[in-house]
Design a protein around this nucleic acid. Structure first.
Lengths: 221, 221
DNA sequence: CAGGCGCTGTCGATTCCCTGTCGGTCAACT
DNA sequence: AGTTGACCGACAGGGAATCGACAGCGCCTG
């Protein structure tokens, strides 16, 4: 549910890629109509709607009795503060421009805690490397690693998609904010820094596929 | 059970987040009906109902023979004094606007008193730090600390959710009253003050996850 | 009712760390 | 051996976190 098609499509595409069904709407009216018939498990609502008031949409959504969790999108200098208070219930919000993986991570988190009874932890694992998404602890063979936010995000994306090989462009598009200008070697750089921290102990985990991209997986035969 | 959907939703969402089941009602009639079929363990009743008399609801609830504990919500200049007389027997009340963590803490306390046989104490513990929610005593390795109300609430939230990493927005949304505008660094400040008191003795307990938020947990290896 | 005190939040200075750019070097494939 | 792609050291700009100083407020006390 969004205002400008690019963003809505972006979100829908990524969600579908994740294996979810997704429908989009270009106005508040349409959003409410489609939500009523589609019965979504989660709603992504852009509050910077040109014609409609995003909060109005939210109100009517709630008033119709649905408790579906909502994740809001908002511009930095927009209604960010008014939104802030809405994260209380387990709903969440992101400031545009955001990174696609960040959005998906938030959606997964909200879904996990809104549907499941207890908070079952989400722990990613590749070989002897583990990542706990609640505590943000990353361990290689038990040893705790200290990662910066960017390193953490890149590693999460690699682990989540493991053992798929990802191109640098894919990594850039998912982990950095959409519209990131830097056609540079940031990805290489972050991978390099990650390797230094990860492979400090044990065999190399992140492997280069020359001319294509990177994978994280147990060293191949 | 509430008047305006936002507050009712807020309460229900937070309760569900805690792992509880929750149903809401938009009128006194509906509240009584749903209470009869749902058989709740606890009722949150907003006394500032536009059409219905909150006390009437309470009376009829009691008249129907249920001893379910009730926690009231009321405006500051409302019927606070009349409510006070009703809070005997394990019930309680909050003045709006309240902080959600405060509400949840009260609900937990009332439930503990009403269902449990004896008053089993609720003591939170992280490493050598303990918090007794009955006596409000906080100790670091036996040494008693003197915390201000805000510090106490922030610490409780951090301890209760430990070892999950919480964003500043989460902390702000849960510990401060809903509708708190503060686009400021209050959270950072309170954490700073807490640290000075906590880490006075022993290793740092509240850790910064740069670019993300804070956790309280035993210092990592 | 004035004064004092403790609590809370704002402001701003400082420090530290993260991030991305540049460019030289190295490795791999042809 | 040449060419292309990958790696990573060094550096600088910017942003995040911390905390001292202070002001407003409410509460208690005299």
């Amino acid at each position: 549910m969004d205002d400008d098609p690019p963003i809505a499509d972006l979100v829908a595409t990524v969600a579908r890629y994740e294996g979810w069904e997704a429908v989009t709407a270009n106005s508040g009216e349409e959003a409410l109509r489609r939500a009523a018939e589609f019965r979504p498990d989660i709603v992504v609502l852009d509050l910077m709607l040109p014609d409609v008031d995003g909060f109005g949409v939210l109100d009517r959504l709630r008033r119709s009795g649905t408790m579906v969790p909502v994740v809001f999108l908002t511009a930095r200098d927009g209604v960010a503060d008014r939104v802030a208070g809405l994260t209380r219930g387990g709903d969440d919000y992101l400031i545009k421009p955001f990174a696609v993986e960040e959005l998906m991570a938030r959606l997964r988190t909200v879904l996990r805690r809104s549907t499941g009874p207890g908070h079952q932890r989400s722990v990613l694992r590749v070989a002897d490397l583990t990542m706990d998404e609640d505590t943000r602890e990353v361990r290689r063979g038990g040893r705790l690693l200290s990662l910066t936010p960017t390193e953490y995000e890149v590693l999460r994306y690699l682990m989540r998609r493991s053992p798929t090989v990802l191109t640098k462009a894919q990594i850039l598009d998912h982990v950095w904010e959409y519209g990131f200008g830097g056609r540079s070697n940031v990805v290489e750089l972050v991978v390099s820094r990650l390797r230094r921290k990860l492979d400090d102990t044990g065999a190399p985990l992140i492997q280069t596929v020359r001319g294509f991209g990177y994978v994280i997986r147990r060293a191949a035969e």
